[in-house]
Write a protein that binds this DNA or RNA. Structure first.
Length: 592
RNA sequence: CGGGGCGUAGCGCAGCCUGGUAGCGCACCUGCCUUGGGCGCAGGGGGUCGUAGGUUCAAAUCCUAUCGCCCCGACCA
């Protein structure tokens, strides 16, 4: 039996000064975790217990669809060179040398290791499909670890990888994961949502994220309360209300107007008496394309101009831009702006520049136009001349975009793309991500099997991740008040804490001991707070440490009664001692 | 990596400006007392003031460097 007096549960009255988010404060105060360094945490007794329960649920559900492996965290450089990620991952990849000077790194994910096993062992379509998974530490040298356990440098991840003969097979593996993830998060007692996710520049086709709404989250998700539409802001779209175009002025050809000192969208719109919706916002960006190996080719970089046009009242979504041009961009410097536009910032527009016709044409500047401007007419943009703007601009007629693309960020209140009702935007924590990888690794690492016809084909892959500590963190964020937090019983370190009000009272402590024994015999996870402390101390600790139920054993044992307290609602019930086991069978929905 | 903040006992903080005995609350130990929401009284232990160098008769305090941690941003398969 677990006796609190013998356990190491170092609770704190005050949170460490550098903890800001609720989960961080409470997990430290409750003695679950202690910090070792930035983004690196130790799990103490309670933390580890909870952690193990989460892992066990993940393992059970994953075992229904896949096979568990255990892969090394220490990887040779060559493996990451083979996939091309040694360079791509940059500083986020922990790198080290072994005693012989061989370059090694610590795994951020295990696509390379899994694929290397697959390519050595898989020979035939008959061996497919495969789903391999593991629950193991991952290492990422994050530029800025933060928010306690939310963004850390070492964390436990359930990562799985599927290998299928074709896209239809991948669909099946993907759906199996979708189902398993729902089962896992349901069992962990989380209120989560599944959102369409940005598949990134890696060329994936489909991707969903499992998100828990909390103000501590780092992601922004767009969702519709009226239907099931939900997407990461990086991916979300919306229906726009039609905008009435301006009437053409004069002969309908581009017309310069004098706009002295009017630089911002708002200033110009007000000055000309039009809505920002009839204006073009011109963003001047540069993509610095550094050759793939950043060490040897230092200083040798090729920059190309990327000019983005948006409706005047819209904001650029950098993830979407990234997906379109597959490169990181930065704002142009003043000199670069003058070199291209022959004009100072504030009066930029698309006129008079020879734009690239093709995204792959590196020689000329690229003009990307947001889809919200497609089909619009008589817009107003800068004239590329100080103190002048141009009216009557119609895309496709007066200037020729390199490409139209969805580049803007959705804002709250815009119409849902499915049902037209207003969209909401919330912050959220990503607890899981499923991803159709495609042929990215099969191709780069040379994975081939023979199909029915004896022909070599590339298996298609999927990868799927769950952040174990994020489940715990999200659960704490979801259930806390000023006194502490409560975890769902399935992932709490103990289901019940039994608090005898005075251990020196024989009747009380005997009854508490007896109840603990009976509940434990019935299969409940209980801890007996047998410390010789005042009741207030025990209650405060019980409230703090995340245990969902408390039994208070007080003077009324003489009447055969104790109190059961539900932590989340603070509901208190009198229960007769003889009925206590039945009561918990009922409370926890377990058969007696 | 840019901007900001902070390193003094396990936790929370004061002291630093204006150099001179290192302090408070909580926690901890002993004893008494108390026992339905962090009880009370008495006694006690614990700190190279992040580290290194410098200025000075004297440095937690002033100067320089460095390390670490937190926050905002950039970044985040």
């Amino acid at each position: 039996m677990h006796r609190w007096s013998e356990l190491f549960i170092p609770t704190l009255r005050e949170a460490p000064a550098d903890a800001e988010v609720a989960s961080h404060k409470f997990l430290v105060r409750a003695g679950y975790i202690r910090q070792l360094a930035a983004g690196i945490y130790s799990y103490l007794f309670l933390g580890n217990r909870s952690f193990n329960k989460v892992s066990a649920i993940v393992r059970q559900e994953m075992d229904r669809i896949g096979q568990e492996f255990y892969l090394p965290a220490l990887h040779p450089r060559e493996l990451w060179e083979a996939s091309g990620r040694y360079a791509i991952m940059g500083e986020n990849l922990f790198r080290l040398k072994d005693r012989k000077g061989t370059d090694m790194c610590l795994g951020m994910t295990e696509e390379e290791v899994m694929t290397s096993i697959a390519l050595k062992e898989l020979r035939s379509y008959k061996q497919l499909p495969q789903i391999w998974y593991q629950i193991a530490p991952k290492f990422r040298d994050e530029p800025r670890p933060r928010s306690g356990l939310l963004r850390v440098r070492q964390f436990m991840m359930k990562d799985s990888y599927s290998f299928d003969i074709d896209a239809a097979g991948l669909d099946v593996s993907y759906k199996k994961h979708y189902g398993a993830y729902c089962a896992i998060f349901d069992r962990c007692g989380l209120k989560y949502m599944v959102v369409e996710a940005d598949s990134g520049a890696m060329g994936g086709k489909e991707s969903h994220e499992f998100m828990v709404r909390t103000n501590a989250g780092e992601d922004l998700i767009v969702s519709c309360d009226a239907c099931d539409y939900a997407a990461n802001l990086e991916k979300a779209t919306s229906k726009l209300e039609a905008v009435e175009d301006l009437k053409p002025e004069g002969d309908g050809n581009p017309l310069e107007v004098h706009t002295p000192g009017q630089k911002t969208i708002e200033e110009v719109a007000k000055f000309l008496g039009v809505s920002p919706k009839n204006k073009i916002k011109t963003l001047a960006l540069m993509a610095d394309e550094v050759a793939s190996d950043n060490k040897d080719t230092k200083g040798k970089k090729h920059s190309r101009a990327i000019i983005v046009l948006l409706r005047g009242d819209h904001q650029l979504n950098e993830a979407k831009l990234n997906g379109t041009v597959a490169a990181a961009t930065r704002p142009m410097e003043e000199a670069e702006i003058r070199a291209l536009f022959k004009s100072p910032a504030g009066y930029l527009g698309p006129m008079g520049i020879d734009w690239s016709r093709d995204l792959n044409d590196v020689a000329k500047p690229v003009l990307l136009v947001d889809k919200a401007l497609e089909g619009r007419a008589n817009l107003i943009a800068g004239a590329n001349k100080e103190d002048y703007h141009v009216k009557n601009l119609t895309p496709g007629k007066d200037f020729h975009p390199t490409a139209y693309a969805d580049l803007r960020s959705v804002t709250a209140g815009e119409a849902c793309p499915n049902c037209g009702k207003p969209l909401r935007i919330d912050t959220a924590v990503e607890i899981g991500h499923i991803f159709k990888l495609g042929y990215r690794y099969s191709d780069s690492m040379g994975l081939r099997v023979l199909d029915k016809n004896g022909k070599e084909v590339m298996p298609i892959m999927g990868c799927y991740g769950i952040g174990i500590e994020r489940i715990l963190t999200a659960a704490v964020e979801q259930g806390n008040d000023e006194n502490g937090f409560w975890l769902p019983p399935s992932i709490a370190p103990f289901e019940v804490v039994i608090a005898p009000v005075n251990v020196k009272d024989e009747a009380v402590s005997k009854a508490a001991e007896d109840i603990a024994k009976r509940l434990e015999a019935a299969g409940f996870d209980v801890v007996l707070d047998d410390r010789d402390e005042r009741p207030g101390v025990k209650f405060k600790d019980a409230d703090l440490v995340g245990i969902p139920f408390r039994i208070t054993v007080g003077k009324r044992v003489t009447e055969g009664t104790v109190e059961v307290v539900i932590r989340s609602t603070r509901e208190v019930r009198d229960v007769t001692i003889s009925a206590i086991v039945d009561h918990f069978h009922h409370l926890l929905g377990r058969a007696g």
